[in-house]
């Protein structure tokens, strides 16, 4: 067949399909702002659940925050937790249903402020589930207030002149912190703003679920540094660029702990 004879209509047919939104994402329109990384993060988790053939055995926990409605979009059994308590719910489920695949999906305020105790102790006990941590350095749902991960000098509605660390404290690198705990098995920091990063993050989530499935004896923790273009008051593309320039230097991407061993960054 000659190239010039091929039309778009010829290509658009089931046998040529290479990418389609997974059925494990419902058809509901996502409640997220344009360009928000939550949608991508949701989708790749569901793609992994589908590809690993564990739809019937996976239970997810939604947090309080922008992704409180994650259960509306992820087409699997889900529970919705009180603010910060997702790791406790996950502990309750995993301890009583050890063969189920459990993950929590939490933002920075949920995981690293109000839920710090639940996060640290689930990690330290070595609970065998996955925590997906979305870090966009701001409270998105309540309107862009300062988060535990807001960068020094970064503006938010409760640090309108920029985060003054002397007054407001320092941003918390909770991912590095949990990597220090003997109970974590796999700790990594990824992003979903480019195709390459999405692919890497998906591999990380797959690794995390595989570790859980094989009962590798420890908590799997995947941080996704993400954007909040509404909270940061930028266009989606500008927000992604700002994230690369400002968030990544403070929250560098890459594996922090692999197979229970800290990765040597030297």
């Amino acid at each position: 067949m000659k190239e010039e004879n091929i039309t778009t209509t010829d290509i658009i047919s089931d046998e040529n399909l290479v990418y389609k939104k997974t059925d494990l994402m419902t058809d509901k329109t996502l409640s997220y702002c344009p360009g928000c990384g939550h949608g991508t993060a949701h989708r790749i988790i569901m793609e992994v659940v589908e590809e690993m053939d564990m739809t019937e055995d996976t239970i997810g926990i939604a947090p309080v925050g922008c992704s409180v409605l994650a259960y509306e979009f992820m087409n699997i059994d889900m529970q919705q937790a009180a603010h910060g308590r997702a790791p406790a719910l996950a502990t309750g489920i995993k301890r009583t249903w050890p063969d189920k695949m459990i993950f929590t999906y939490q933002g920075d305020g949920d995981l690293a402020a109000i839920g710090t105790a639940e996060t640290i102790h689930a990690c330290n006990r070595g609970e065998n589930f996955l925590i997906v941590f979305i870090n966009n350095g701001i409270y998105g749902m309540t309107g862009g207030q300062m988060a535990p991960t807001t960068l020094p000098g970064m503006k938010s509605s409760t640090s309108p002149y920029g985060r003054d660390v002397k007054l407001m404290g320092n941003p918390l690198k909770i991912t590095e912190l949990v990597a220090e705990l003997p109970g974590t098995y796999y700790v990594t920091r990824q992003a979903v703003h480019t195709p390459a990063n999405v692919r890497k993050t998906k591999r990380a989530i797959k690794t995390a679920f595989k570790n859980q499935m094989e009962n590798k004896g420890g908590l799997n923790f995947v941080e996704i540094v993400s954007n909040c273009n509404s909270g940061w008051k930028m266009s989606p593309v500008d927000a992604n660029n700002w994230m690369v320039e400002n968030m990544f230097p403070f929250y560098p991407l890459g594996d922090i702990k692999l197979d229970g061993e800290k990765v040597n960054k030297e």
């Binding site: 926990i61 937790a81 308590r85 406790a88 719910l89 502990t91 309750g92 009583t96 639940e118």
Partner: peptide, 26 residues
């Protein structure tokens, strides 16, 4: 039966929530 000492009463009741939500007697 699972017995676990949680890090706080808050964590304990939320562990109960999770397990109860999955049909267990907790």
């Amino acid at each position: 039966m699972v017995v676990l000492q949680a890090e706080s009463e808050i964590a304990a009741i939320n562990m109960v929530y999770g397990a109860a939500g999955s049909g267990k007697k907790v």
